[in-house]
Design a protein around this nucleic acid. Structure first.
Lengths: 206, 206
DNA sequence: GCAAAACCTGTCCAAAGGTACGATGTATTT
DNA sequence: AAATACATCGTACCTTTGGACAGGTTTTGC
C-alpha cells in the first residue's frame, strides 16, 4: 500500500490530513523518515505554510531527491509559485486547507503518476503550452498583405478595442476605421473583428 | 464506481484495454453512450488511431463537453499534439498501445482530477511554464468562476463563432446565448466578445 | 505627368450584439 | 417548504458593427 508522509516542521497535524489519510505519518524533518519504508512506495506532502520562505525550495529539492512523488501544500497558492515548484519536481500543488475529500483526490492522482493542481492553474498551464509550441500547421494569415495603416488598425482591434477607441488611438474617425477594417477582413478572409483578433494573435505570438 | 468508456469508430477492442479495465464499455460513437450512465462519473478514452485526422479535434471538443474527463490514445504521440489536445480539454494523453498497467495508472490519475502524460512530455511542459512566466502577476481570467454551460459558450466564442453559431452548436436559442454571455462578461470583467475571445485564448499577451 | 494605390471622410441602412425588464422549470441545499 | 443556483426563453430597446454608395487628398511608381 502507498504510504502518505506529511512533513511539517511545527509538528502540527491538521485534522484534515488525518481525515483524508488515517494511516498517514507526520514528521518534522525529512531525516525522520523511517529508513525502512524508503524501499516501498510513498507520497510526500510538504506543508509550506509551516516552512520558512527561505527553506522551501531547498527542502523541495531534497524531497524530490528521495524518489517519491511530492505534493506541496501552500498557504496562499499562486501561479508563479506553482509553476516554479512543479518545475523543480513537485507533482501536486494545492491549498493547505483543502477538504479531505480533495486531498484524497490529489494524493490518488499523484501517486499514479499524474499531475495535480487547482483547475484554474491547470487551465493556465495548458494555455501557456500552446504559445510556445508551434500551432497547428494551418497557415496563418498573411499579414504582409496589409498596409501600414491597416496593420495599426488590426493591432488595436487585436488588443480588444472597439471602433471608437481605435479611431481615437490613431487620430482618425470611426468611419475610416470601418473602411480599413472592411479591407482587412477581405484581405485576411475573416468575417468580423473577433476572428481578426484571434488570427492576428496566434500569429504574433508564434 | 467509475466507469471507463472507450470510443473507437472501428469498434476494434484492444486486448490491452480489456486487460486494464475488464468492466470497460466500447462504443463506436459518442451518441452510443448509454444515457443512463451519463449521471454517474466516468472516464472517456478516445482512440485517435481510429479517428480520422479531420474529426479529431471536433470529437475531442464534443467529448469534453459531456463533462467527463477525457483521455486521448495516440498512435504516434507528439509534443505539439499533446499540448494542443490537453489545451482543448483532454486530461490524459498516452500511447494507444501502452501496457495495461500503465493504462490503469493513467485512468486512476485522471479520474481523480489529475493530468497525465508521458514523463518526458510532463517534464517538458513544466519546463516551458517557467520559460514563459518569468515574471509573476499577469493573473489570467478566473475561468473557474464560470458554470459548465457558460464555459461552453465561452469556448465557442473563443473559436470565433457568432451568436447564431454558438446557439446552433449548443442546441439552444440565440437569446440564451446572449444571457450566458452577459453573465460571462460580468464575471470575467470584459466588455464584449472580442475581449472574451482574447482573454480566454492567450492569457498574457500584452 | 499620370495612373494606381493608399488614406481619409460622409450618409444611410441592415444586421448583429448587448442590456433591461421579465418569465419558467429543474436541481440542490438549507 | 423555502431558498438558491442554474439553464432556458421572450419582448423591447439601444448600441455597435459592417457594408453600400459616394466622394475627397496624398503618396507612390512607371
Amino acid at each position: 500500500m502507498v504510504k502518505q508522509f506529511f512533513v511539517t516542521p511545527g509538528g502540527n497535524i491538521r485534522n484534515r490530513w488525518q481525515e483524508a489519510f488515517p494511516e498517514a505519518s507526520v514528521v518534522t524533518r525529512l531525516m525522520q523518515l523511517p529508513e525502512a519504508s524508503k524501499a516501498s512506495p510513498g507520497v510526500l506532502w510538504l506543508d509550506f505554510s509551516a516552512i520558512a520562505q527561505l527553506d522551501r525550495v531547498s527542502m523541495l529539492e531534497e524531497s524530490v531527491g528521495l524518489g517519491w512523488p511530492v505534493i506541496v501544500l501552500a498557504a496562499t497558492p499562486s501561479e508563479s509559485e506553482a509553476f516554479q515548484l512543479l518545475n523543480i519536481g513537485a507533482r501536486g500543488y494545492c491549498h493547505v486547507n483543502a477538504h479531505p475529500q480533495q486531498l484524497c483526490e490529489v494524493g490518488t492522482a499523484v501517486e499514479h503518476g499524474g499531475l495535480w493542481m487547482p483547475p484554474n492553474l491547470m487551465q493556465r498551464l495548458l494555455a501557456l503550452s500552446l504559445r510556445v509550441v508551434p500551432q497547428d500547421s494551418a497557415v496563418g494569415p498573411d499579414l504582409s498583405a496589409l498596409t501600414s495603416r491597416e496593420l495599426m488598425v488590426a493591432r488595436e482591434v487585436a488588443k480588444g478595442g472597439n471602433n471608437r477607441e481605435v479611431a481615437s488611438a490613431l487620430g482618425i474617425t470611426e468611419r475610416t476605421v470601418k473602411a480599413h477594417l472592411s479591407t482587412i477582413f477581405e484581405k485576411l478572409e475573416v468575417r468580423d473583428r473577433v476572428q481578426l483578433a484571434l488570427c492576428t494573435n496566434n500569429v504574433s505570438t508564434r
